[in-house]
Simulated scan of single mutants.
Amino acid sequence: MEQLLTLDSLFTLFMLVLLQAVLGFDNLLYISLESQKAPKDKQSYVRKMGVGLAIILRIVLLFVLLELIKYFQNPFLSMHSNTFIEFDLNGHSLIVLAGGIFIIYTAVKEIWHMMLMKEHAKIEGKESKKSVKSVIIWIVIMNLVFSFDSILSAMALTSDMDATPQLVLMTIAIILGGLLMIVMADKVSNFLQKNKMYEVLGLFILFIVGIMLLTEGGHLAHIELFGNKITPMSKTTFYFVIITLVIIDIVQGRYQKNLLAKKEAQDRKE
């Protein structure tokens, strides 16, 4: 207990919570968009329940990873001496790759629905009837997919500590990070619902999240395509792309408003 109350341990806890918040942004965006498929009066409940269950399962996952980490890292399927593709697939890479593929599919499907404006209302109506249980299940599943990187990063950050203090600090960080996610998920979701124009931006960011997961999974699996290694997209690059997309969206929005104002002024003169 004394080791947990030292200045060094408290600083490590702060860094762990900060890590959970930074690495949880893409997860937060998915939760906000996925929860909109539930009935409107149940969306806040879905977000809270989904993240709440995910917190419990994250702690379970933490225990599992601490005990079975070597099994997630050891390759179970390999292919070499192939001019097209080479890889060493392990459990960690498979989960990350599957998560990336699913998120890209989700983003592309929603973007396609938005492009078909006449069908969008019908699709929205059908999706709003999606059961609360199924939405919560998907939120929990994807939360666990996103958990791998944050938990493994947290394990690296506390690797110099004894097993018990390490486990306690990481558990506290998961709980605090989850509570922060519950609060922020409502705010992000409310913002997207009030500003529908930013929902398209959110879906494209989600698409980039999927690409980031695919590159991370490809790197973990040591995939080489035509002799070229797949390198993971860094968080710095990810946030730079997001900032660029937001700036483009703001500039384009203001430009369109100026064009509409100019057109209205010309119509009045005529």
Rank of each mutant, 00 (worst) to 15 (best):
residue 122 K to C: 01
residue 125 G to T: 04
residue 126 K to W: 00
residue 128 S to V: 00
residue 129 K to D: 05
residue 129 K to V: 00
residue 135 V to G: 08
residue 135 V to Y: 04
residue 139 I to G: 10
residue 141 I to L: 15
residue 146 F to L: 15
residue 147 S to L: 10
residue 152 L to F: 14
residue 154 A to K: 01
residue 157 L to A: 15
residue 157 L to Q: 13
residue 159 S to Q: 12
residue 160 D to R: 11
residue 160 D to I: 07
residue 161 M to A: 10
residue 166 Q to K: 15
residue 167 L to E: 03
residue 168 V to D: 05
residue 168 V to W: 03
residue 169 L to W: 05
residue 169 L to Y: 07
residue 169 L to E: 05
residue 173 A to F: 08
residue 173 A to I: 14
residue 175 I to V: 15
residue 179 L to G: 08
residue 181 M to K: 10
residue 189 S to Y: 10
residue 189 S to E: 07
residue 189 S to M: 12
residue 190 N to A: 14
residue 191 F to I: 07
residue 194 K to E: 10
residue 196 K to G: 13
residue 198 Y to H: 10
residue 201 L to C: 11
residue 201 L to Q: 12
residue 202 G to D: 02
residue 204 F to P: 05
residue 205 I to F: 07
residue 205 I to R: 01
residue 206 L to K: 04
residue 206 L to V: 12
residue 207 F to I: 01
residue 210 G to R: 01
residue 210 G to C: 08
residue 212 M to D: 06
residue 214 L to C: 08
residue 214 L to D: 02
residue 215 T to S: 05
residue 215 T to L: 02
residue 217 G to P: 02
residue 219 H to Q: 12
residue 221 A to N: 06
residue 222 H to F: 04
residue 230 I to D: 04
residue 231 T to Q: 10
residue 233 M to Q: 11
residue 235 K to M: 14
residue 235 K to A: 11
